[in-house]
Amino acid sequence: MLLEAPFTEEMMRALKVGDLVEITGVVYTGRDAVHKYLHEGGKSPVDLRDAIIYHCGPVVVKEGGRWVVKAAGPTTSIREEPYQGPLMEQYGLRGVIGKGGMGPKTLAACQKVGACYLHAVGGAAQVLAECVTAVEGVHLLEEFGSPEAIWEFRVAKFPAVVTMDAHGKSLHANVASVSAEALARLLKP
C-alpha cells in the first residue's frame, strides 16, 4: 500500500495492523534529544503538522559540499513513550516510524488524532538509506550532534509494517501476550 504525502487523517485511519506500506514524501528524524526538547516546550524548527517523525539517528557525511546518507535505520521507539502521545496531539502528527513498538499512551494518541505507528526493520540501515532520495535540511545539528539532529529526508517507497493503528490495535501487545503465556508454561515449577 502506497502512503504518499500529503499525509492525511483519512489515509491513516484506513490502515490496519499488519498492513505493509511504502512511504513517499518528507519525513523528519527525531529521537531522544528532540523529543525531550519539544516536550519541554522547545520550539520546533520545522512544521510538524500532519508530519511523520522517524525515530532514527542516521550516519550522514558531507561529501563535496552536500549531505550524503550512509546509513539510516530505525532506533528503539519505546524510549520516547513519555513524550510521543502528547507531541502527537500537540502537533497533529500523522505517523511515527520506528522499531520495537510503543506503549498504551501512544496507542491512545494514535486512536485520538488518527495516526499510525509504522515499524521499519531494525538494523536494515542500507535498505532504508536507499529510499532516502534527498536530504532537504538539517536542524539542531550543533546543539544535539548528528545522530540526534532533525534531518529532513525526502523518501520514496520507504517500507514499513503498520504495527499500531488508529483503531486501538497493537501487534506488540498481541505478541507480548502470546510470549508471556509461552514463558509461563516453560517456567512452570
Binding site: 550516519v59 550512509k70 526493520v121 538494523g123 540501515a125 542500507q126 501487534l171
Partner: peptide
C-alpha cells in the same frame, strides 16, 4: 511479517557488503 522481516534483513546484508557501508546506522 516474520518472513518479510527476514527478507529485508537478507537484502540489507547484501547491500551493505556491496556498498561497503554500515549494515546498521548504530555502529
Amino acid at each position: 511479517n516474520a518472513k518479510y522481516a527476514f527478507g529485508v534483513i537478507r537484502d540489507n546484508i547484501k547491500l551493505a557488503a556491496g556498498k561497503s557501508q554500515p549494515l546498521c546506522q548504530d555502529t
